[in-house]
Design a protein around this nucleic acid. Structure first.
Length: 610
DNA sequence: TTAGGGTTAG
């Protein structure tokens, strides 16, 4: 039945005057009910038309109904909401808030949310209320509009909303999104009462900024006052994944199983986080177990498996999951799926497959490649020595290359001896971006010169770095033994077992020498003018090697050595780790920021990546 | 009388 033909019953027992009033009220209530129940735009249009005929914005009740209709439109179309708003002579605060929210939630009109708020203040007819702030702050968080957000914060004090829990939660999110973790924490600490969302916003912010230990500490504190929910668990699992700590991750899994009902235990996002945590902590078996036990799968959960296997260089399994997702799962892959598949190809140097999936994504699935997809393919081609083809691809991209892409190219140039001129071009492109990557660029450039035996230039770059105060990022590796994390920096002597570690390092070297190992001194170019043995010493003291020596000291039969390395794996370390896996008959698993490298019997699962 | 806060993976 059409909403316009719904019967309106009439009371016959009341006097004429009263009947009219009752009928009018009834129409209002009926309209409100219809707005609530409205499920599509054509219904909304009919209700709107009826409201225009039967209500007036000059009386409070009419304005109320129009507010609700404006609100209904605000969920559909921000620009149309703006037009409707323009026709209201005296919009109330609810209507202003509705318009601001509509812009804040829109795809690309978020700036309008802030500007409408400005107009609201300028006109001065209506004062913002406690609902206004979360909407504007959301837009500020998205746009990184730091100054505007800070002004809003000041205004909350002036208007007395500084104790409102919603406003404060929005402020935490806003500050964290702008990178001001300290301000976010200040807001959080000053809150007199907190909801589960407050805790989640703060824990999530810490995880987002890589402060995994602190986020877990806050999670512990949270349990004294609030019951965690699915959002909390996702953040906590992300923190475990970030730390790469399998024992902590397993503890969290057990905690979830023991403390939550099916609504959380069967939640597809919580389970996807579990899958990701297990993949990132090195246990693909447990990840698969969780995945198989999930009551239902989404594109997200399939992607977690695809990305997880890709991360481990298990390209065949990645592709099997890709194919099962479409057949068994009946789902359509999205752009993230293809990041997974392409990065598996990249990890294993599968050039033809990489090209095939890239084309499939565009032609069969009509997905426009994003910078990440180009990044995978460019890296794959460049590492395979197809630098011309990689450059062609870059020049045909619909967007400007980012510094990650230039960095991949420079990396490949430095390994494939692609020529000093070309490498310099790349370096200039990266340095134009500025930021933290600079030290890496200088190091790569010095490697280019080192492999060309141009030691003078290597020295010049080193001096340039010193003049410009650019410090080489220190390498750092960590390793977990019996649930305790041990951290090593390059040349570190602070570990309590340092003596034994160094003794083991020299034992390893003896074995390496006997096996004919030749150190790749171009990987230690910053000591180019010192004796060759010092270069070798620099290589020997790389954090990955310290961690592996420590792992060998504490090894257990049948248990692989697991190293978590923060920086890119150095090529010399890669060769050494391979040899150590053969000489000591040990399986070694090294995780860097984005990938796992499995070493066994002198081979690495992703040798083609190098 | 209306409504508001925290996430989507790479």
């Amino acid at each position: 039945m059409s909403v316009l033909t719904a019967p309106l019953p009439v009371s016959v027992s009341l006097p004429e005057k009263q009947v009219n009033r009752v009928r009018l009220d009834y129409r209002h209530d009926r309209l409100l009910q219809l707005v609530d129940e409205c499920t599509d735009i054509s219904q909304l249009k009919q209700i709107h038309a009826r409201a225009l005929r039967t209500t007036s914005s000059h009386d409070a009740r009419g304005l109320f109904i129009q507010s609700r209709i404006l609100h209904a439109w605000s969920l559909v179309d921000a620009e149309y909401t703006h037009r409707l708003f323009g026709q209201v002579t005296e919009p109330n605060v609810f209507m202003w808030n509705t318009l601001i929210r509509s812009f804040a939630l829109s795809r690309d009109l978020k700036e309008e949310a802030i500007s409408v708020f400005g107009t609201m203040l300028e006109e001065g007819k209506v004062e913002p209320d406690k609902h206004t702030f979360p909407f504007v702050l959301k837009a500020c968080a998205y746009l990184f509009a730091l100054e505007e957000g800070k002004q809003l914060h000041a205004m909350t004090f002036k208007l007395g909303f500084d104790r409102d829990i919603y406003v404060n939660n929005s402020l935490i999110h806003f500050y964290a999104s702008c990178g001001l973790l300290k301000n976010a924490r200040d807001v959080f600490e000053r809150m007199s009462s907190r909801s589960v969302v407050s805790w989640n916003a703060m824990i999530g912010a810490l995880v987002e900024h890589g402060e995994f230990d602190n986020s877990l500490q806050l999670f512990r504190e949270m349990q004294e006052s609030s019951k965690p929910d699915g959002y909390t668990l996702q953040s906590v699992l992300n923190a475990c994944a970030g730390l790469g700590s399998l024992s902590l991750g397993m503890w969290t899994h057990l905690y979830i199983l023991k403390n939550f009902e099916a609504d959380v235990n069967d939640d597809v996002l919580v389970n996807s986080s579990l899958v990701e945590m297990y993949c990132k902590s090195g246990s693909l078996e447990l990840a698969e177990k969780v995945f198989r036990r999930m009551p239902r799968h989404s594109v997200h959960s399939w992607n977690s498996m695809i990305l997880g296997f890709a991360m481990h260089g298990q390209a065949e399994a990645t592709m099997k999951y890709f194919s099962d997702m479409t057949t068994e799962g009946g789902l359509v892959p999205n752009s993230v799926t293809f990041v997974g598949v392409l990065s598996a190809c990249n990890h294993r140097g599968m050039v033809d497959e990489g090209r095939k999936y890239f084309d499939m994504m565009i032609k069969d699935y009509k997905i426009d490649p994003q910078i990440e997809h180009y990044g995978c393919l460019v890296d794959l081609l460049a590492r395979a020595g197809l630098i011309e083809e990689a450059l062609d691809l870059v020049s045909n991209m619909s967007m400007k290359p980012d510094k990650i892409i230039w960095r991949c190219l420079l990396d490949a140039c430095s390994k494939k001896n692609a020529g000093i001129e070309l490498s310099m071009d790349m370096a200039v492109q990266i340095l134009e971006f500025g930021g933290e990557e600079c030290s890496g660029v200088y190091v790569l450039l010095s490697r280019v010169y080192a492999s060309a035996q141009q030691w003078n230039e290597v020295g010049l770059i080193r001096n340039l770095m010193m003049e410009r105060g650019i410090a080489k990022e220190p390498g750092c590796s960590s390793m977990e033994i019996n649930g305790v994390s041990h951290e090593f920096f390059a040349g570190d002597t602070s570990h309590p077992q340092t003596n034994s570690i160094y003794q083991t390092l020299y034992e390893i070297d003896e074995k390496l020498d006997a096996a004919g190992y030749l150190p790749d001194v171009s990987q230690a170019p910053m000591v180019e003018d010192e004796a060759c043995d010092d270069k070798r010493n620099t290589l020997r003291l790389h954090s990955e090697r310290l961690a592996i020596a420590f792992g060998l000291l504490n090894r257990k039969n049948g248990v692989p050595i697991r190293v978590f390395k923060n920086l890119r794996v150095c090529n010399d370390c890669h060769q050494v780790t391979k040899l150590v896996s053969r000489l000591y008959n040990m399986e070694i698993i090294v995780r860097d920021r984005t990938r796992f490298h499995h070493f066994k019997d002198g081979l690495c699962s992703c040798d083609d990546y190098w």
